[in-house]
């Protein structure tokens, strides 16, 4: 990779997700590509959910972080294909979510099974128990569902697989 482009990837690692500040927009998989055209830096981003209100904030944060690092000519481009998937979250990123108290997503096939009515296993991020149940498919943000642990009784967020 071009060292300057690599440097920009590293800079964007410092931009946190506004809702889940323990992971960056790069780890979330929202930044898809970084290119340079002349002096212009073109950052391609993809939304997690089409209506996610945090997207605008992430875009603003990306631009202001790059400006802070001295880049002036910045263009953001929204790409929709391929559609964002939680499969892009690395194991290390998932572990950060778990430690933050959010049950990380399984592979997307796990939720497809659930759509077909098959049981799915979501472990409590606090005590690790698999004895959990869903309260609501829709949680505090578009990307999360609301679950509770039937052992330690704590409610928790589950990062939905899509």
């Amino acid at each position: 990779m071009n060292p300057e482009i690599e440097k920009i990837w590293n800079v964007l690692q410092e931009v946190p997700d506004p809702e889940i500040p323990v992971i960056s927009v790069v780890e979330l998989g929202v930044v898809r590509a970084i290119e340079k055209s002349g002096e212009k830096i073109i950052v391609s981003v993809t939304p997690t959910y089409t209506g996610c209100p945090a997207m605008k904030m992430m875009e603003d944060d990306i631009v202001s972080k790059l400006k802070e690092k001295g880049y002036t000519d910045i263009q953001l481009r929204t790409v929709l294909s391929p559609a964002w998937t939680t499969d892009w979250l690395s194991d290390a990123t998932k572990e950060k979510l778990r430690r933050y108290g959010i049950a990380p997503p399984e592979k997307s096939t796990a939720d497809k099974n659930a759509l077909l009515g098959k049981p799915r296993e979501v472990k409590c991020p606090r005590c690790g128990s698999a004895h959990t149940s869903m309260i609501s498919q829709f949680g505090s943000t578009a990307c999360k569902a609301l679950w509770k642990c039937d052992d330690c009784q704590e409610p928790f967020d589950y990062f939905k697989c899509i």
Binding site: Y49, G51, G139
Partner: peptide, 14 residues
Amino acid sequence: DLALANIALDLLGQ
């Protein structure tokens, strides 16, 4: 309340 608002948000995004 959360579910319907979440669905509304997805629809507006579309």
